[in-house]
Amino acid sequence: MPETHSEPHLQHHFVALEQQQEASTLGMWAFLITEIMFFGGLFTLFTAYVSAYSEAFAEGSRHLDLVLGAVNTVVLIGSSFTMAMAVRSAQLGKRKALLGFLALTTLLGCAFLGIKGIEYAHKFKQRLLPGPAFRVDSPASQHVQLFFSFYFAMTGLHALHMVVGVGLMTWLLFHGWRGRFTPTYFWPVELSGLYWHFVDIVWIFLFPVLYLVARHS
């Protein structure tokens, strides 16, 4: 491998830009694995509890707004599409398209958070926030509260990841606007994209698990 230290983005401890890029991508995947396990703990508990308290969890699930949940799913899938297109534009060196798709992704991400906020506000008004104020007219109200504990913990953690994602998008927009990304140096866009898609996948599971699966029984 030639020693090409003229490359401005090459850090000193790497031999070549290619090695640096591969290392970064692998690092991002390793990080995403930790994220899988992080959310995995919550999914494990949820699975255990749903098998024990299926009726109460179904009741909790029916309190959720299916329409808003479904709309949010569509919004997030749309944002994943625009993100993928942003990466593609970066690979091809199309600056305007990159900025456009990044802006769209940011917008859709914010829309998701906005809709989530409306849902939270409804739940708050309906006194479905776990804690002393929680009220639900049910013989198994404690177990319904458990459902909402999971609902808020899981969607809250997911929303937190969305906020970080929107922050990343803003950062990319700034640097993209300054023209920092080129067909040979686009991996910050690519890595942010991996993160964004991962957060999308978490929602792809959260939506059926919380809104759909338990509706019957």
Binding site: S80, L194, H197, I204, L212, V213
Partner: peptide
């Protein structure tokens, strides 16, 4: 049956995202 259907669809969606978008 409902759970299996929903999870199968979710896994399919996730697989599509992982394979193509990622």
């Amino acid at each position: 049956a409902n759970a299996v259907t929903a999870l199968t669809i979710a896994v399919s969606k996730a697989t599509l995202v992982v394979l193509y978008f990622m």
